[in-house]
């Protein structure tokens, strides 16, 4: 039989055993690669005139990108908190409005939604309340992305709140704390642990997604890059400069957020 034959064949056992990784296997080479890329780009920017020209054309957009990111983040944070609390509220109306908002936004891709919000819904709404053209173009775009990220953050808040055991709320309420006090002093401080990291993630995602605002005419980094490259035909220089700037911004923000997170959890390092 086949199995007999197989068994009959000389079989040299190869032992399985755990092997420690050598230093060169576990070293963070990727950090070196990123630094090398950044340095190479930096040298280009310093010594290549074409890059320098691209840089000076794009750089005014950086401030607009940063400013938009901060506004969007703050508005989205407030919207997310409200909609997150709304979803766990006892109030039927609040619950359903919050849920509808979150599900609508999550059911539509970002880019089409930015078009719809910034070019149709927000202008139409402001016209409906008798304040036609009252929202400047940049703010329509900022509000659009803030509304989108507000819905994403609502899910983070809801999840964080619901991850806290029901007994915590019951203990708070049985001591006479109101619903609001229990949420503020008992549930939220505990939920913050699981809420902060994904919110920080969204902060970075917002920074990156401000590039989408270029499609509705906000003169941020991407928009300026496209304008400059289209008029100068220096695509290589313009696009590399743009990606360098984004990478530098994202790395800076994520470093900042890492410090912030470890500061938030500083004196409770060993908890649970």
């Amino acid at each position: 039989m086949a199995t007999e034959a197989a068994r009959g064949r000389a079989h040299v056992p190869r032992k399985r055993r755990a092997e420690e990784e050598a230093w060169w296997q576990s070293a963070p080479w990727w950090v070196g690669i990123i630094i090398a890329v950044m340095v190479a780009m930096g040298l280009k920017l310093l010594f290549d005139e074409d890059y320098d020209l691209a840089w000076s054309n794009i750089i005014p957009g950086v401030w607009i990108t940063i400013r938009s990111t901060i506004y969007i983040f703050i508005i989205a944070l407030v919207l997310g908190l409200l909609a997150g609390l709304g979803q766990v509220s006892n109030n039927v109306v609040a619950r359903n409005i919050a849920r509808a908002y979150v599900e609508l936004v999550r059911g539509i891709p970002i880019l089409p939604l930015i078009f719809t919000l910034a070019l149709v819904i927000i202008p139409d709404l402001s016209a409906a309340v008798g304040a036609e053209n009252s929202v400047p173009n940049d703010w329509r775009a900022i509000l659009a992305l803030a509304l989108i990220y507000g819905a994403y953050m609502a899910e983070i808040f809801r999840g964080g709140i619901q991850s806290i055991a029901r007994g915590q709320t019951e203990a708070g309420r049985s001591l006479g704390l109101s619903r609001r006090q229990t949420m503020r002093s008992v549930v939220m401080p505990q939920a913050a642990r699981s809420i902060i990291p994904p919110i920080a993630n969204d902060f970075i995602a917002i920074l990156k997604d401000t590039s989408l605002l270029s499609v509705v005419g906000v003169l941020e980094i991407t928009r300026r890059t496209r304008q400059y490259s289209a008029s100068s035909f220096k695509f290589t220089e313009a696009f590399f400069t743009m990606t360098f700037i984004y990478l530098a911004l994202v790395l800076a923000l994520s470093t900042l957020l890492t410090f912030f997170e470890s500061w938030m959890t500083r004196d409770r390092a060993g908890e649970r």
Binding site: A165, G167, Q168, E170, A171, L175, G176, S185, P189, Q190
Partner: peptide, 28 residues
């Protein structure tokens, strides 16, 4: 809320607030 402040309740699972020290638990 006022009535509940007058009615203490002790649970099977303790339900202490894990983010607060013992004294803060009792003071909150």
């Amino acid at each position: 809320d006022l009535v509940r402040a007058e009615v203490g309740m002790v649970f099977q699972g303790f339900n202490l607030f894990p983010h607060l020290t013992v004294i803060d638990n009792v003071m909150l």
